[in-house]
Design a protein around this nucleic acid. Sequence first.
DNA 1: CGATATCTTGAGGAATCTCAATACTAGTGG
DNA 2: CCACTAGTATTGAGATTCCTCAAGATATCG
Lengths: 251, 251
Amino acid sequence: MGGRGDLNPAKTLLPAASRRSVPENPCAACPVRSLAICAALEPEQLGLLDEINQRVSIDAGATLIAEGDPAHHLFNVSTGTLRVHKLLPDGRRQIIGFLFAGDFVGLAVKQEYAYSVEAIAPSEICRFPRKDLEALLERFPKMGRELFARASDELAIAQDQMLLLGKKTARERVASMLLSLARRAELRGVKNGPIELPMTRNDIGDYLGLTTETVSRTFTKLRNEGLIETPPGHLVVIRDPEALGDAAEGG
Amino acid sequence: MGGRGDLNPAKTLLPAASRRSVPENPCAACPVRSLAICAALEPEQLGLLDEINQRVSIDAGATLIAEGDPAHHLFNVSTGTLRVHKLLPDGRRQIIGFLFAGDFVGLAVKQEYAYSVEAIAPSEICRFPRKDLEALLERFPKMGRELFARASDELAIAQDQMLLLGKKTARERVASMLLSLARRAELRGVKNGPIELPMTRNDIGDYLGLTTETVSRTFTKLRNEGLIETPPGHLVVIRDPEALGDAAEGG
DNA sequence: CGATATCTTGAGGAATCTCAATACTAGTGG
DNA sequence: CCACTAGTATTGAGATTCCTCAAGATATCG
């Protein structure tokens, strides 16, 4: 599964315009701050977070975390898309989730990550040394609560995915995924637009417990039935949200 | 499914002998304290936890939490076994997990539980009002960290289960479950003994994304191959741990 | 514009599910 | 203590969904 990706600390991610008002504090001007764990801090505290923040940008295909790596960092996605996966010894892959702007990753039970994270599209990520972040947590309990809330949220999502993987049909799985991506896009402020699907059919299959072919066939069916459109450019338009909602739960 | 179970606040769960040394503090004498979230508190702080603890005991089959209930409590299992599940509108059921002594349950993202919890065997549970527990968390950050660690742990387990549900064969699923139950029994101090399986084949199926029949057939195969024994009384003995380990990952 | 990866579609096969019958187990009452 | 009953488990046979293998179409990127 390839080695570590090129982790180039980014120089300056922010356009001059947005830096003007808070020249010494990039975090304060971060466009995804309200989505990220950073939302737990007051503007005047963001400088502290920025001090421990190691910005990295990686290319599509590069690895941010390899399963088994010592879990020294926590991450927050600024821009881009990544996939999180686990492997079986024989190479079978389960994608645990996809990461978009604002998403958080890096929790580990033991000292090592139990999953890998790779970029699907060029991505910029805020990387926080665990030790430093924990020190910050001591000072700002609100941030600890935010982190806890994120973990609980992830857990609820994981449980939904168990229901999907354990009990849903291929059609229900694809419909569920499209709706969930649409919901997440809305949270990021993208309303009612077409959904971006930067991942391949194979990625989708490995996420939904299906094969590439079954995913493709299912898309074709949903398109023929008029529930979705699939314009070029890795996009999907939900034509009939209600019918798709029914399709997602076997209705 | 059914309604809410009989939640009878238990009077006194502990034998007189173990109460003698700390007569005013049942928590201090709790046999599963080291397994529970209570382990985060010093002995002299346990009294505070005990004050907000509402002990409940429920019969096999009774419901502790119904999906959609307002999430007013967090729970810690003292004794017994429970199952956690989610339902699709048409009644398909996915079991998210089983709870044994020391296990924790009750996290909720919104104001409502997103899952149901039912007793498989008669169970005794420590119930903590969320509000009260949060107040305690303010005073004892260590307990907050413990809770966070539990949530992270749950998340890692959920991700393993996604891999199982998305990619593993029936044989691998059953083998994985047996090994994981054995590991959990060890954590509770039950070493190398036969594994108790208080749940039905149907429960196991709904946990592993299989049908009763497939679970039964798989058990039969593993028994015929000499990897396990299935003495009467809902027990399983692992005869060949190594082979079972291989079977769990397709080796 | 060509090369390569990705996607789609088809045909056949395999694992698991469904339906159905029988055997077992545990708890109940005689 | 045994027989009875209801739930549970096992086994079989056939159906079905999804997978595998393969070929062709489309998209993407240098």
